[in-house]
Every structure is written in C-alpha cells, then in structure tokens.
Amino acid sequence: MTATGLLKPTSSDDVWLVASGSLLVVVLAFNDQWWPTQAIASMLALLGLLVPSTRNQSSLWFSMSAVLAAGFVLEWWTTDNHHLLIIATLLLFGICARSRDKVDRLSSGAAALVAVAFAAALIAKAMSPDFRSGVFASYVPTLDPRLGDLAVRVGATSRETLVTNQSALDSLATTETVGLTPVSDWFAIVMLVWTVGLELLVAVGFAVRHRRLRQVGNIALLTFIVTTYSVVPVVGFAGVLSVLGFAQAESRLLKALYVAAFVSIPLQDAIARVL
C-alpha cells in the first residue's frame, strides 16, 4: 500500500467488521470478569466471531452488555473501570448495529466515550489531595510493583529502598508512624506531567470536533495506550481503548496504528509472562 493509500478512508463495511470483531475478541480473551457471567458473554462473543451476520443484530450486543453488567453488580468488589468501559462500548455497538449510517454513529459515539473516560480520570486526579501534593507519584512505586520495577529500571530508586519502604508500611499494624523514602523528584514530576498531559490532550482532542485537535488526540491516545499498558498491562483496557480509537480514526494509517496497539499490548504481556 502506498503512503497516500494509508491516508485514505476505509470502507464502512470493513470498519464495522474489524471494529466489531476486535471488540468481540476483547470480551472473549481480554475481559476478566466474574466467571459465570464471563462464560456467558464469551459464548455470545464466540457466536459473533463465528457468524459475522449476528454482529448486525443489536440483541447480540445488548445481551452481552446486560450479562457483563450483571456480573459487574453481583461481584462489585472485583470490578474496575475498564469493565464499565467495555459494557458501555457494547451498548454503543448495539445502538449502532442496525443503523444505515452505523460507522458514522459508531465513530461519534466512540469519540464521546473516550473523551468522557479521560475527562473523568483527569477530574479524579484534580480532586485527589494525594495527587496534587505529589504523594501519589513519590510513593506509588512502593505500593505498586509494576511501577516499582519501572522506577528501579530508570534509576529513580533502588530495589532495597522499595523493600525497606514496604517493610515499614507492613509494620504500621504495630507502629504508629514510619519513615519512608520517596522516589527521585524527577521521576515523580515526569510521571505527573506525562500522565496529566496525555490525558488532557486525549480528553480535549476527542471532545472537540476539530480536525487538528482530533489528530493530536489520536496521537496522545496511541502514546497513552503503548506507554501506560507496557508498564501496567491491563489488556482489557488497552483493547477497548484501541477498538474505540480505531472506530473513530479517519485515515488508514491511524486505523493501522490502532490495530498494531490492539495486538502489541497482549502480545507483550504474553511474552513477559513466558519469560
């Protein structure tokens, strides 16, 4: 394919086929909900993958959404925001499935979902005293081993410091206060600026109907998916964001990049598990 070919729009049928198929893969392979509702949703997703004509039936998407919503409520203590985003995305596909202009509506609805999700994340950070004071960025590597590994690899702290901090926190059961060592200031600042900057660009880029801003938003979303989920491999979240990004992307190049992002995160996670 030539460079100009990559910038051309893809046919509506192809977009629907790839977007709907990818979302079904997310439900089948990347979702990690309560097993009874997950099993039912997986069977429905398999039906959609094996019989592509069923993807044009709203009932397929609505029933998957309802089943996963039931799991969300019944086992609330294991549910995360990506489970909610997957349920909302299934609803969107159900609403669009029977429309004549389904791909246009899917594109608009997907952009709105991404904008809301990132705006909600930004508001939560703005309202959090831990985040505003820098406590979160300075100490989250101690509390989250995935970010701890990253901080050690880039030289922002040492493995010994993280272990000492963790032992100190464990002793809080018997001690009133304990001293902790934060990560280097530069790491905390980079993490704050990187996270807030990307989330802001995505939220604005997807909320506003402006071609240039949307392009910036797309680049920010792709960067967010690749950088965030390489460190914190939540494949369900990376998968649904890639599907939503693909659904609203106009050029073939952007669509190809979202497909690459969709494949790369679970692949990287699988390789990391094997190694």
Partner: peptide, 14 residues
C-alpha cells in the same frame, strides 16, 4: 477511588 467503575485509579495511594 480505584474501584467500582470509578476513574480514580492512579490518582491516590488509597
């Protein structure tokens, strides 16, 4: 803030 469909993940140590 991390749980139950909130978007407060990675905003607090709680």
């Amino acid at each position: 803030p991390w749980e139950l469909g909130g978007f407060g993940m990675f905003s607090t140590i709680d």
